[in-house]
């Protein structure tokens, strides 16, 4: 038996539990992304675009992990991709917060 590599998150052959969790994560983040895209369609602001990108990164995390589970992506690359997506997610959310001020409609209400 070959020793497990310390970087591997997923076993080479998918076990049903892991598959189920991936399915849940994929459906959940897919729905969230759909909501965010619909909201972006309404608002069209930079903040909402960044929220869409952040949730896109969340969905991509599951996709990358799925690819690793079924073979095409090797464990080292999978590990790197996951953490790179985490970094992107955090960056997009920080951007969304930064742009929230300028995205909010200004309501000038100077008392007469």
């Amino acid at each position: 038996m070959t020793p497990l590599r310390s970087v591997a998150h997923a076993a080479p052959s998918p076990d049903p539990g892991l598959l189920g969790v991936h399915l849940l994560a994929g459906v959940g983040s897919g729905l969230l992304l759909a909501l965010a895209v619909a909201a972006l369609g309404q608002r069209g602001s930079r903040s909402y675009l960044l929220v869409v990108l952040a949730l896109g990164a969340l969905l991509a995390r599951t996709l990358v992990s799925g690819l690793a589970m079924f073979g095409p992506l090797d464990a080292g690359l999978h590990h790197f991709a996951e953490h790179a997506l985490d970094a992107m997610l955090a960056t997009f959310l920080l951007g969304a917060i930064y742009y929230a001020r300028s995205a909010a409609p200004s309501a000038p209400e100077e008392p007469l």
């Binding site: 965010a36 909201a39 903040s47 929220v51 995205a103 909010a104």
Partner: peptide, 14 residues
């Protein structure tokens, strides 16, 4: 969708 925008607006509000 409506509640999503409500939540995001509230989270992003200063």
């Amino acid at each position: 969708v409506d509640r999503f925008t409500r939540l995001v607006d509230r989270l992003l509000a200063e």
